[in-house]
Amino acid sequence: MKKLFSFVIAAGLSIAAFAQTEAIKIGTAVPAGNTTLTDISGKETTLAKETKKNGLLVMFSCNTCPYVVANEARTVDILTYAQSKNIGVVVINSNEAQRSGADSEEAMKAYAKKLNYKWAYTVDKNSAVADAFGATKTPEVFLFDGKGLLAYHGAIDDSPKEETEVKAKHLHNAIDELTAGKDITVKTSKSIGCTIKRVAVK
């Protein structure tokens, strides 16, 4: 029993070593803006380089999470919409613990091709950028304004699985208000999805 108890405590400490207690606050500048991210094309980029005149939209995502899959059409639509509003778009895969499997670079390439991604889909080595953001879920979005300050954080909308049940398009509304120079009505919402699969610190 003592051995089992010790194992449970050790496992808990390993998880706590990399778990982020909370995400960055509204008004925070883009964290890890100059951290190198590798796109599936092999090109290296940074969040600073991908930022456009009206801001930057960062989405933490992956290839297989059921919530990501349920949001595929909505993801493509909203990221395309953000680009049309002169907002830079970066999708980040921070599932470092699955890099040799479902979230390998090859799997990411196939996934992006299937959905016809027109934006950077990047590998977050050692989940460093996710750690800087305090991101915990896939999908989870962070919208920054033209000054590089966080304006909205949370979910795409209020229905994590069923598109037919959407009543509030949080991210779409935030983009509209941001680009119109208005104060964003709903600045945060709850991200519901799969946990980011970080590698435990030994």
Rank of each mutant, 00 (worst) to 15 (best):
A151R: 13
T138A: 03
K147M: 09
E165I: 09
F133C: 05
K169A: 14
H170Y: 11
K161N: 09
T164V: 15
Y152D: 00
K169C: 13
K161L: 10
H153K: 05
H172A: 15
I156Y: 13
K169I: 06
F142Y: 10
G148A: 12
L150K: 07
S159E: 11
P139I: 01
V166R: 08
D145H: 12
D157P: 00
D157F: 10
I156Q: 13
T164I: 14
D157M: 11
G146Y: 01
K137L: 08
K169H: 15
L143D: 05
A130C: 08
G148E: 05
A151H: 13
F142S: 05
E163C: 13
L149H: 15
G148M: 05
F133G: 01
A135P: 04
G146P: 07
L171V: 01
K147W: 03
K137W: 11
E162Q: 13
P160G: 10
P139R: 03
A155K: 09
V166M: 09
G134R: 07
A132F: 02
T138D: 00
H153L: 07
H172D: 14
F144T: 02
D158R: 05
K161D: 14
D145N: 13
V141I: 06
G148C: 01
K137F: 11
L150T: 01
V166K: 03
A135W: 02
Y152C: 01
A155C: 00
D131T: 08
K161P: 12
K137T: 12
E165D: 15
H170F: 10
Y152I: 02
L143T: 08
L149D: 08
G154N: 03
D131M: 09
T164A: 15
H153W: 05
A132T: 00
K167T: 15
A155F: 04
P160A: 10
H172E: 12
L149T: 14
F133V: 03
K161H: 13
T164P: 09
T138N: 00
L171P: 09
F133R: 03
V141D: 11
T138F: 02
L149C: 13
D145M: 02
E163I: 12
F142V: 02
K167V: 12
F144C: 02
A130H: 02
H153M: 06
A130R: 03
L149E: 14
G154Y: 03
I156F: 13
K147N: 13
F133W: 01
E140V: 06
G146W: 04
S159W: 09
L150M: 04
A132L: 03
S159P: 07
K167I: 10
K167R: 10
L149N: 14
H170T: 04
A135T: 04
